[in-house]
Every structure is written in structure tokens, then in C-alpha cells.
Design a protein around this nucleic acid. Structure first.
Lengths: 347, 347
DNA sequence: TGTCGAAATTTGATCGATCAAATTGGATCG
DNA sequence: CGATCCAATTTGATCGATCAAATTTCGACA
């Protein structure tokens, strides 16, 4: 009860040497099956667990991933990071990796944290979220040879195919194609779009999905399609204002797809007619209120991140092994729900 | 560029020994000011950072706190854990502590994780959230002499004052007193309550706040007050159904306070008259839609947790030092917002 | 000025694991 | 049957820091 067992205790119990125990753990193929079994049962008997810090000191690896906890992406979609974090932690666990959190007030501060965590050998890779155009963080990480993967494409034109930049992202364009197509298939024609002002990497990508679907399958003229787009800042009240614009315009709208659940919720609240509205992110709000939304497959994103991180190049480029692609683009899924009866009493 | 500097490098540069450098870092009072300055400037020059794993190996402490990431407290209030986590990480950082995440599928699995993390010397304390009556986790932690603090009181009658159990919690009763009083002060009388079915530690506590305020300040008879309470499961649709019950009952209601924002949102949606409704948690949804809600001071909770953890007894009981209280009860704050115009077009 | 005790600093050992090199044991083959 | 080679295992050294004990320096005081 007093002391935790060490490799030496296990070795003694199994009648072998330290190193053999270590080998059973790290390179089982070097150990004869009979020996391995002896050691394994000794490990089980003593309840031995390797001492993480000792191992890290020796190997100079931490088996830990650092991720910044955003200062609450305030608004409704904060839960996306939350769910991603959960998926990441769960799957990292399964691979023997730990997830360490940190916070930062701004990108420069975040870089300072990178430095601190790297120097302390606390983490050996980082996962970045909410990347943006010309992000100084990825630049720093690349320059300093740090392993990292971003959740989100680098939106700068040049960076997108930078072989040193590993990324995983969700194909928002595909998501909005699905959403738009879904409404068109129910017989509606004039599908509006409420999105964020350009330029916005993610926003422009989603918008494109709506636009190309409308061009192809709505039967409207390009000018008519253009008139069905409204841009609004992120936020429920902006969504409400936007939907009114669409409804009051000549021709009106039959349905609306939005760049976010916040906008969709606003649209739902602001709408005077009961038209179907589709959001993005499938947040708990969408589920609670009951409107359709595009769901990001965050477990697939997490899996992708870990694959890239632990893959052949271990997050670092290795010029000759160009087997795996250096990024993953996963497809979101439309979750269809009935139009909710917002603000209308049922009795 | 190649190697990170170690204590020895710093010592050489400053013309002192390893241990002196170590002392400057850990027990500055042992070092003469002149020497300390020399060492400090050497540290700055070389950009030295102590190697966390080496230190942990030697001291047998990890300076790391483990916290379980809940499997998405699905519903709207998930963001509470999120915000708590953020506050905790931020303040832990400031104290040189790290926050390590883990997940678990059920309490037993969580106990297995405790064991794993303890044995690997990965963490030296745990923070538990969502504790419940007769929680096996706290039992295990106490039995095994593990440091921990819970966010949430132990609701079992016996456990509440268990000196081995450190906890921090939010005074929900106070929060509902404030909310109820606020509505009474605006001249309303019949304030209804939508809460969770008993027994529910948190729920019963909040309900009490409403009840005692009504008894004292509403001028209604106990029977009349009783009639203003409706219990509902957590969830938007249940909140909507509950508010209808209240409105349709003889006498109706002038306003409603709820045990959660989900219920409040439901009440808002389900309500046919435009009565003020107050939620609990001040989630992003409350802020977006714009209804009043009771906000938990999560940064104070985080601060309390860390104080207890790093305090005199370091999270572990030390029978003779009974100076600090072993728990903190912090007061929430009512965030007042105008009644939203849900589902009513403004033009 | 010399002595003594406290303060400041240094040296040697250690935490628990893995790496690198050395050693042992077996099977193969001329 | 003995030399050779490969597989399996062991031994010694090390990662970077702190602890414990030994040593030096310093200041006060007789």
C-alpha cells in the first residue's frame, strides 16, 4: 500500500530484469512469448502502472496533446468545441494520449503558451481550433518545428497546400448542398440563405454550397438566386432581422438555410410565416427547439486529428513518406426535424 | 537551438551550482539577493524553463489536476461545465497547475480512470462535477487518500459535513430568492415555479429559495403558493407544457421562475400571455433570446476549488490544522433582461 | 583577532523509466 | 564437435530535476 510498484518490483517478481519488463511494455516482439506471459501476470498481480513522468523524462516525449480552451465562443455554438473536445479526449485516451488544456487571451499569448508547454516538455503536439487567415500561430509552430494539426483549413490561398500544415476540416459546402437540396426536394423553390459577410473562410465555403445547388437545381435565374441571399452578423437578433428582409422582398421565400444555429434560431423567431429553416452545427438548441440542422461529425474530426498526429510523420513532415494525405475533409450530415411550433400555443 | 538549457547550464552561466539555481526557483528566501539576481538573469538570458517531467519524477507531484469531461450534459446547460472548465484552466495556469482531461462512461469507469491517472502520477488531485447522492466516486477517493474537491455539495445527509470531503457549490437557494424577489418587487404577486421532481439535491435547494420568498413576501397563503409549483423533467418541451398548466390554473400566474434555462426557454415558448420568466444558469441561449437568468459565478467557484486544493491541507485532511473551512458556498447573481418578444413579428 | 553558530552554497544520491552496449543461450552448419 | 551467428536477456549509464547531508562563508561577539 505504501509504495507503488516499479519496473524493478515487477522484474523481481517475474524473475527477469528491468529491461525485459520495459520491453514487454514497449517492444513485445523482442520478448519470448513464455517470458512475456510471466511478466504480464506479474504486472497484473502487482497492479503495476508505468510512471508517466519517468518515462517522459527518459524518452523526451510527453504523449500529451495541448489544446486551447477558447474563451467561450460566445453565442450558441460554443458547444461545438465542447463536443469536439470530448471526442478528442475519448479517442486520445484509447491511444494512450492525454489531453492538456490551456487558455490564452490572444494569439500572441497563445504562442507564449506554446513555448512554455514545449519547453516544459508538457506536450508534444498541439491541436488548434478556429484558425483564421494569416494565422500567426501556425506560422510560429511551423518555424519552430512543433507538431500540430488544425481543426479548420488554413484559409490563406498559399497555405492551403503547405505540406507542413496538417489539417482536418468539415466540408461545410457539402453540408449546405445537402440542406438546400433537402428543401428543394420537398417541392420548395425559393430557398434563401442567411450567412456571414465575406470574407470569411468558413462562411464563404458554406455559402457556396447553397449557391451552387440553387444554380443547378432550383430553376431560378442567377439574379433571382442572388436576391435570396442576406448577410448578417453572427447572433440571434441579426438572424431575425435577416429573415424579415427575405420575407418582405418581392417573391418572398419558401425556406431558409443558415450559416449557423444562432442565425437559424433568429430566423425562426423573426419569421412571420411558418417556413422551414435549417441551421448549422446541430447544437443543443436546435435539438431542443426542434429545427433541422447540419451536424458536424466531430468524432470523425477527432479521429482524423489523431491519425495525422500519430501517423507516419507524427505530425512532422518527413519528406520521403508521402503516403498519407496531410489533411482530411469530412462530410457533415443533415439532421432533419419537423418545423417547430415556436410561440404558437397548442390549445 | 539544439538542446534546451538545463539547471546545469544556468548554474554554469551564473557561476553557481545546480542546487542554487533550484533554490532560486523553489525557495528564493534561501538565496542571497545578489546571487539570486545573477541566477535570474542567467535564466532569462538562456530562456531556461524547468523540465516539468523531471521535476515531477523527483518530487512525486504532478502539479496537474484531473477533471472529467462530461459526456455532454445534453440539453442547453452543457455550457456551464464549459465555462467552469475555462475558469478553472485559466486560474490553474496562474498557479502553475495544469488541467488534464479524461472521459468515462459511468462512475465505475471513472473510478478506473482515477486509478490509472493516480498510478501514472499523471495528476495529484481531481475535481469532480455533478456529484449525486451516495456517489461512489467520492467514497473511493476518500478511501484511497486521493486529493479532490467537488463542485457540488454531497447531497447525502451524512456526507455534507464529512471533513474529508472538500466542496464548493453555488447557493441556488439564494439565487431563486433573488429571482423571486425581483419579480415580486416589480409589483407581481403570483410567481410560479417550474422545477425538477424531488428528490434532487440541486433542484430541491433551488425550489426552497422560491418557496421561502413566496411565503415571506408574496402575501399568498401556503396553499396558494403550493398551487403555483409545477414539476417537470429537464427539457424545453416539458417547460412548455408546465407553463401551460400554470396559466390555465385558476388564478393563473404573473411570472415564472425556473430551475434551468431549458425549462425557462420552454416556458417562454409555451406561454400564451407575455409574462416575465426567469431561468437559471444564464446560458448563451438566455443571453441570445434575452430572458433573465441566474448566473453562477463560475470563476469564484474555480477559485474556491483551487484554494481548497492548494490550501493548508492540500486537499487532504490534516487533523490538526482546522483553520480554513473545508467548503465554500458562493452566491449567484441575477442577470436581468427585458422580456423578449418571442415569436411576435415587430412590423 | 579568534571562535562559534547560523546562513549560504555545494556535493552526492536519487526519483523510475529507457537507451545503448554487453552478455548469455540456442540453433545451424561445415 | 566446435565455431558462428542471431535471438533473448541483462547490465551500466542517463534523462533533469530536487532532496539530504556536507561544506564553506559570513557576521556577531568576547
Amino acid at each position: 500500500m505504501g509504495q507503488l510498484p516499479t519496473v524493478l518490483d515487477v522484474a523481481t517478481a517475474a524473475g527477469v530484469s528491468r529491461q525485459t519488463v520495459s520491453n514487454v511494455l514497449n517492444s513485445p516482439e523482442l520478448v519470448r512469448p513464455a517470458t512475456r506471459e510471466k511478466v504480464e501476470s506479474a504486472i497484473a498481480d502487482l497492479g503495476y502502472r508505468p510512471h508517466a513522468s519517468a518515462r517522459r523524462l527518459r524518452t523526451q516525449k510527453s504523449s500529451t496533446i495541448g489544446i486551447r480552451l477558447d474563451p467561450m465562443t460566445d453565442g450558441i455554438s460554443g458547444s461545438v468545441l465542447d463536443r469536439f473536445l470530448h471526442a478528442l479526449t475519448e479517442q486520445a485516451d484509447a491511444k494512450g494520449l492525454r489531453v492538456l488544456l490551456f487558455t490564452a487571451t490572444d494569439p500572441d499569448d497563445e504562442i507564449r503558451q506554446f513555448q512554455r508547454l514545449r519547453d516544459g516538455a508538457d506536450v508534444d503536439a498541439f491541436v488548434l481550433t478556429s484558425t483564421f487567415h494569416g494565422d500567426p500561430r501556425t506560422e510560429w509552430l511551423i518555424e519552430n518545428g512543433q507538431s500540430f494539426v488544425t481543426f479548420g483549413r488554413p484559409w490563406g490561398i498559399d497555405d492551403m497546400d503547405d505540406p507542413q500544415h496538417l489539417w482536418v476540416d468539415v466540408d461545410g459546402r457539402h453540408g449546405l448542398r445537402e440542406a438546400t437540396m433537402h428543401l428543394l426536394e420537398t417541392g420548395l423553390t425559393r430557398i434563401g440563405y442567411i450567412g456571414w459577410p465575406s470574407p470569411s473562410g468558413t462562411g464563404d465555403d458554406r455559402r457556396l454550397g447553397w449557391m451552387e445547388t440553387m444554380a443547378k437545381a432550383s430553376g431560378l435565374t442567377p439574379a433571382e438566386v442572388d436576391a435570396l441571399e442576406v448577410t448578417a452578423q453572427e447572433g440571434v437578433s441579426y438572424g431575425a432581422a435577416a429573415v424579415r428582409l427575405l420575407e418582405d422582398a418581392p417573391g418572398g421565400v419558401d425556406g431558409v438555410v443558415c450559416a449557423s444555429d444562432s442565425l437559424a434560431l433568429g430566423a425562426l423567431i423573426g419569421s412571420t410565416r411558418r417556413i422551414p429553416i435549417i441551421g448549422y452545427d446541430n447544437t443543443p438548441v436546435a435539438a431542443s427547439i426542434g429545427f433541422s440542422s447540419v451536424e458536424q461529425p466531430l468524432d470523425q474530426v477527432a479521429a482524423g486529428v489523431l491519425e495525422l498526429l500519430t501517423g507516419a510523420h507524427g505530425g512532422k513532415l518527413n519528406d520521403d513518406t508521402v503516403t498519407d494525405p496531410r489533411h482530411r475533409l469530412v462530410k457533415p450530415r443533415l439532421v432533419v426535424r419537423d418545423v417547430p411550433t415556436l410561440g404558437v400555443a397548442t390549445h
